[in-house]
Amino acid sequence: MPITSQSSLRATTAGILLTLIRAIQSLVAGGEWGGATLMSMEHSSKKTKGFGASLSVAGGPAGALVATFVLGIVASLPEKQFLSWCWRMPILASTIVVLVALYLLYQVSESPEFLAAE
């Protein structure tokens, strides 16, 4: 985000883009959440269906805690380092999480309950 000493048009545009990107992120997360919960539950055994479904529900808050922890570590570095390059490290590290998530997404098979219902 631009600082206030930069042009107001640039700061306004950055604010609008940030808001738009966060809205898109929220819509995508909301759309995936229900399906992830259902798949977790359907792939669990009869005894652990509730626990299986709760894992995907706990994923969002757990991710927020991890992100806060990582930002706390990075932000504890000297201000000059943080502003010049360190703030990029958590973003680059998140690409690993995205790649793992995409791999898992493409490896998940249809649930046994769905196949039985067909």
Rank of each mutant, 00 (worst) to 15 (best):
G72S: 00
E42Y: 09
G72T: 00
Q6G: 04
V28N: 15
E113Y: 04
A62D: 02
M89C: 08
W85F: 11
Q25H: 06
I24A: 13
G50I: 03
E113Q: 05
V70A: 07
S26R: 05
K47F: 15
M39D: 06
R22H: 14
V100G: 03
T95E: 06
T48L: 12
G35I: 11
T12V: 07
G63V: 11
M1I: 15
Y106V: 02
T12G: 04
A62Q: 04
E79H: 02
G30W: 00
A117H: 07
S44R: 03
L9T: 08
A64M: 09
T37K: 11
L102P: 01
V66M: 15
P2F: 11
G30K: 00
Y103W: 06
G30F: 01
F82T: 00
G31W: 13
V28D: 14
L71T: 14
G50P: 02
V97G: 05
P112Q: 08
G72I: 01
S8H: 12
A64V: 06
A116S: 06
S8E: 10
F51D: 15
T19E: 12
I73Q: 05
G52Y: 08
M41T: 11
R10G: 10
S84F: 02
V28I: 15
T68C: 07
L71I: 11
H43Q: 10
S45Q: 06
W85D: 07
E42F: 10
V108D: 04
A29Q: 05
V100R: 04
Q81P: 02
L18S: 15
P78D: 02
K80W: 02
S76Y: 08
T68N: 09
I96L: 11
I91P: 02
F51H: 12
S56C: 05
L20E: 11
G30M: 00
L77F: 04
W87P: 00
H43S: 09
A58Q: 07
A67T: 13
S44F: 01
A117Y: 10
P78Y: 00
L99M: 05
W85T: 07
M41W: 10
S7C: 02
A101W: 13
A14S: 12
A116N: 09
K47E: 15
P78F: 01
P78C: 01
G31D: 10
V98W: 13
S54A: 14
A62E: 03
S45W: 03
S40E: 01
I24G: 09
A67E: 12
F69H: 06
A11N: 04
Q25D: 05
E110G: 13
G35R: 03
T19W: 13
I3T: 12
M39V: 10
M89V: 13
F114V: 12
G60M: 09
S84C: 02
L115M: 14
F82R: 00
A53W: 01
M41L: 08
A64P: 01
I96V: 14
A67H: 08
S56D: 03
K49C: 06
T4Y: 15
G52A: 13
I24W: 05
P112M: 14
I73F: 05
T37H: 03
A11M: 08
P90Q: 06
I96T: 08
A53C: 04
L102W: 01
G60P: 09
A116D: 07
